[in-house]
Design a protein around this nucleic acid. Structure first.
Length: 117
DNA sequence: CTTCTTACA
DNA sequence: TGTAAGTA
């Protein structure tokens, strides 16, 4: 199938699909016309990419994770031990970011509480 | 009509 | 990311 059909079937824009390829997430074949040709497997791949993107991973991280993940009953399951390691690190980074934002919010609260009525 | 690349908001 | 432009 060509990019238009993949876009319709996944709900992902053609723009994003080309971007995923640029990031090495997808490797569609090329027809002599230059048109990209995707396989049935790419439909599933795009869905996996979306799930990982929603989990906050960037394309570089997804590149490492994608080959080590499998779909089971619509649930994404880690398949390699080193992957779980990466995910835990990512989770910790998110935790750190949350703490920093909380601190920033506390500072804002202090300023707001001090306003004149 | 569909896709492609490049470039800009 | 969306979109416009000029093609194939």
């Amino acid at each position: 199938m060509r990019i238009g059909e993949l876009a319709r079937r996944t709900g992902v824009s053609e723009r994003a699909l080309r971007y995923y390829e640029e990031q090495g997430l997808l490797r569609p074949e090329r027809r002599p016309s230059g048109y990209r040709v995707y396989g049935e497997a790419d439909v599933a791949a795009v869905r996996r990419i979306r799930v990982l993107l929603a989990a906050g991973l960037n394309t570089a991280q997804i590149n490492q994770v994608l080959p080590c993940v499998v779909v089971d009953d619509g649930l994404l399951v880690p398949d390699c031990p080193e992957l779980v390691d990466e995910l835990v690190k990512h989770r910790d980074r998110i935790g750190a970011a949350i703490e920093e934002l909380a601190a920033t919010q506390a500072n804002l609260d202090t300023i707001i509480a001090g306003r004149r009525h």
